[in-house]
């Protein structure tokens, strides 16, 4: 114990000397080195321990395994809409009528708040697939049922804060900043899609 005290006392003296030696250039001491390496080592250790805790709050493997949804399109008649769940959110699938397609394609891009062609949003024009979550604050817009209000552009209308979407699901009026999002999906056959 006595030895330890002397060593520390000496190290303190060395530090004091080092500090007084150069003007603005204090000499690095062995103690500085030890402090830095210890701190660095502890910081890495804390990071390594904290990471698993943070990661545990990310989606678990069983949640990720449910990240795709398949849908049979054959029972959906022209003009009909269905809503399916994908990742806990509604996905709107609409079998559009020729009039709806024509209305969506006739709009000049200059009139759009978030310009996107209908062709880019519906590669197979009769099928429109979008995430049914308003891009304003996350409500589900109305317009899937025949009795729902469809807004000023005959598409969808969000009742929370009054956003109007057209027959291509593009934002036309109201506070929402962007069009209804298109999820990743692919046609597995002409009457079968997989979302996600």
């Amino acid at each position: 114990m006595g030895g330890d005290i002397e060593v520390i006392a000496m190290a303190e003296m060395v530090t004091a000397q080092g500090a007084s030696q150069g003007a603005g250039q204090p000499e690095a001491t062995k103690r500085d080195f030890l402090k830095l390496t210890t701190t660095a080592f502890a910081a890495v250790g804390v990071g390594a321990i904290v990471w698993p805790f943070i990661a545990s709050m990310n989606p678990a493997r069983d949640v990720l395994a449910l990240a795709s949804t398949e849908l049979d399109l054959s029972p959906i008649a022209v003009g009909q809409s269905v809503t399916v769940m994908w990742r806990g959110k509604p996905v709107f699938v609409r079998h559009r009528t020729p009039e709806q397609i024509a209305a969506a394609r006739a709009v000049p891009l200059s009139e759009l708040k978030d310009p996107a062609t209908d062709e880019s949003r519906a590669p197979r024009p009769e099928w429109l697939v979008m995430i049914g979550v308003c891009t304003h604050l996350g409500c589900v817009p109305l317009g899937q049922k025949p009795t729902d209000p469809t807004g000023d552009f005959n598409g969808w209308f969000c009742p929370c804060h009054g956003s109007h979407y057209d027959t291509s699901g593009r934002i036309r009026r109201g506070p929402a900043p962007s069009n209804l999002e298109i999820p990743p999906y692919s046609f597995m056959s002409p009457t079968q899609i997989r979302i996600g």
């Binding site: 698993p52 805790f53 990661a55 545990s56 678990a60 493997r61 949640v63």
Partner: peptide, 13 residues
Amino acid sequence: ERIMRDVNYGWLI
């Protein structure tokens, strides 16, 4: 068991 198999680092925690 889900914590052990599916949750990220659940086995560790």
